[in-house]
Nucleic acid binder design. Structure first.
Length: 668
DNA sequence: ACTACGCCCCTTTTT
DNA sequence: GGGGCGTAGT
């Protein structure tokens, strides 16, 4: 039984009676084991598995806890436990209840918002520069996550100078909501908002006996209100206010702080024995974090004994010398590289470290950061998948169309609109089965009427046979016709194929993807003198197909295309394949532990990041970030910074956290 | 009106 | 290396 090897504190928490339980679990105190034991306790006491909901911060964490439980319980029981991130859980519940939603990444919705902002004028109101669409999106997201109600009012109370635009911004966002609805889009926040509303209005009746919340300190008001909307009989919230580092996403430390006041029957448990870090590491971490206000009493006890090396401060003259020096130390450590992490405040630090390690032949892995899923060829592949699932997805349509010469954003949009009219809002349906009764209207461009491009008839003549008789054929250019013909062929080839991996295989083999791959390879093979490097082009194309194939093999794990698409949209920190030294931002390091940890670029302005510390969480949040970073270390901890940057143009002061940790730093 | 292309900007943290 | 913006070209 998992409960048998718990310490008394952990046991008390794991076997707590039903009710509103808050477990204050400091870093390294066996939080995961306690949650696993709690679920085991619930199952053993006869709670039906499907009445348990486990909310974690990453899907990986949820999967890990379930796999631990699978060792003690029947797999068919464990598979009935609902577990995942807030977002993954909400998505699953909404879909299971018939909500038809296409989840879109923030980057794509920023693009959609941008197209709306672009049509607005601001300068007739004021000379003040208006916010960019990206910034407005983030602001709106923050507003939603912090439980906001009236954007315009909220905005005015927060931002005095930009208040002149508050009405326009609010109207833009109203239109944004309409557009999202029209194209069937939802973003991360929408998942939570939709579910919350559905629960409140009784559209979804999902009862849980107990909801367990991991990383409770990073819950924001939207998430907190969603927990309440479930109306579960019992809560088991596990967190540590000293590790709250998501204020920028609306995480509110007062949610954990006010637990006692919000729930009358609240019981507070504390896990105080640290089994992870050596005494000297813990001492350093606690000394710094003690400067922050204490929300609950903590008496940290060291669970490990033995002789460990003291944390070391490494000071370098130059930024690059720092990365090189760290790589050198790493190569000399007698620790497996998988047990080493380099942790930084800003992702911009990662490149230098990666290069320095590479030079010494040391393998490293970085979390997802762009590369694979954001590459053009994978994005196009996902867009094609998206179109199969959602015929209203205009952004996927434009993304695919752009690889056909002569089709840019505006032309693609026009074609999409025409097709939509043939398919009652669904462009793909409009292409496959145009409604003969639909009347289509098209805003003709003036230039056409002036006869500037007079080959309208000959253009139609050139259309591929498959598209010649389509209702919108008379509006199409040769390129547009070619694109729709390829798309039509693609849709017919994939019709009725459910298996995700088979789908991907067919997509990759389709003429439309072949054209896309060729177009991308072509662009990447243009030499400086504008000639084409043909051998390079072939090589790039092979690499593109190879990458596409690796996505195909990932798809094998999913039962159908829409399950696979869900994974693509929701999966956290996409695959950190291979082995080697982990390169992590502090946020990405959350929940992990390593034998040896390097916290780098500990310079004032860099870490703490001064620009950010003036924002939501303030310097206290930066201090918590420092606390999280150093408490990842089990045995060895190295702290470092450089006095100057590469070009010596900027000089850095040591981070205030180094002083707070008790390091004596000599003056120049 | 729209697309293609070259040049300059910068780069917080995550589901 | 990507996105924003001005310019040339269809």
């Amino acid at each position: 039984m998992p409960l048998s090897h718990l310490n008394p504190e952990q046991f008390a928490a794991a076997s707590a009676p039903f009710g509103h339980n808050l477990i204050i679990a400091s870093a390294g105190t066996g939080k995961t084991s306690t949650i696993v034991a709690r679920i085991a306790h619930l199952l053993s006491s006869g709670v039906e598995a499907s009445k348990i909901l486990l909310l974690t911060f990453t899907n990986k964490a949820a999967a890990e806890m379930l796999s631990r439980l699978a060792k003690k319980f029947d797999k068919s029981v464990i598979s009935r436990v609902s577990a995942g991130t807030f977002h993954a859980t909400a998505y699953a519940l909404l879909r299971a209840n018939g909500f038809d939603i296409t989840l879109k990444q923030p980057s794509e919705l920023k693009l959609l918002l941008k197209s709306i902002v672009g049509q607005r004028k601001f300068h007739h109101i004021s000379d003040i520069g208006a916010f960019s669409a990206a910034y407005l999106y983030e602001l709106y997201s923050f507003f939603q996550n912090t439980g906001g109600d009236d954007f315009e009012e909220w905005f005015r109370s927060k931002n005095s100078e930009q208040s002149v635009y508050s009405a326009i911004y609010a109207d833009i966002l109203r239109e944004f909501e309409e557009e999202k609805k029209r194209f069937g889009y939802a973003d991360f926040n929408d998942l939570l908002l939709y579910l919350k509303r559905a629960l409140k209005e009784g559209d979804i009746a999902q009862e849980f006996t107990e909801i367990l919340v991991d990383e409770y300190q990073d819950t924001n008001l939207l998430q907190s209100s969603l927990i309440d909307a479930f109306g579960a009989k019992s809560l088991f919230c596990v967190g540590d206010y000293d590790q709250s580092i998501y204020a920028f996403n609306g995480a509110d430390i007062s949610i954990i702080g006010s637990f006692k006041e919000r729930y009358k029957d609240a019981k507070i448990y504390a896990l105080n024995t640290n089994y992870r870090s050596s005494q000297s590491i813990l001492k350093l971490a606690n000394r710094v974090i003690a400067i922050n206000p204490r929300l609950y009493e903590k008496e940290l006890k060291v669970g490990r004994e033995g002789a460990f090396s003291q944390p070391r401060l490494l000071v370098y003259d130059d930024l690059f010398a720092q990365y090189k020096g760290i790589a050198q130390i790493i190569s000399s450590l007698k620790v497996p590289s998988d047990e080493i992490a380099v942790i930084f405040r800003n992702n911009s630090s990662a490149d230098g470290v990666e290069i320095a390690l590479k030079e010494l032949g040391i393998a490293s892995k970085r979390k997802g950061s762009g590369s694979f899923f954001e590459s053009r060829e994978i994005k196009a592949l996902i867009s094609l998948v998206s179109l199969l699932l959602n015929g209203k997805d205009i952004m996927a349509f434009i993304d695919v169309a752009q690889y056909f010469k002569g089709l840019g954003e505006a032309k693609s949009k026009q074609i999409f609109e025409l097709l939509s009219q043939c398919g009652a809002g669904d462009a793909i349906a409009g292409l496959l089965r145009p409604d003969p009764k639909a009347t289509i209207t098209h805003k003709r461009r003036k230039n056409y009427e002036l006869g500037l491009f007079d080959d309208e008839l000959s253009v139609s003549e050139n259309l591929p046979a498959s598209i010649k008789n389509h209702k919108i054929a008379s509006f199409l250019s040769t390129e547009g016709g070619e694109f729709l013909s390829d798309l039509l062929y693609f849709l017919k080839a994939l019709k009725g194929v459910k298996d995700a991996s088979a789908c991907l295989g067919l997509i990759i083999a389709s003429p439309i993807y072949e054209k896309i791959a060729t177009a991308i390879a072509h662009k990447k093979s243009i030499r400086k003198d504008k000639s084409i490097d043909e051998s390079q082009k072939e090589l790039t194309k092979e690499r593109i197909i190879h990458r596409a194939r690796s996505l195909e093999s990932i798809a094998k794990n999913y039962k159908d295309l829409s399950a696979f698409y869900n994974f693509l949209s929701l999966s956290d920190s996409q695959m950190s394949a291979g082995s080697g030294v982990s390169l992590l931002s502090v946020h990405a390091s959350k929940g992990l532990e390593f034998e040896a940890v390097f916290v780098i670029d500990l310079a004032q302005n860099r870490f703490p990041n001064i620009r950010l510390s003036s924002g939501a969480g303030g310097i206290e949040e930066e201090r918590r970030l420092f606390y999280v970073a150093v408490t990842r270390a089990k045995n060895e901890l190295f702290l470092s910074y450089a006095k100057y940057d590469k070009n010596g143009k900027i000089s850095y002061e040591p981070s205030q956290f180094l002083k707070e940790a008790g390091f004596k730093i000599e003056k120049e």
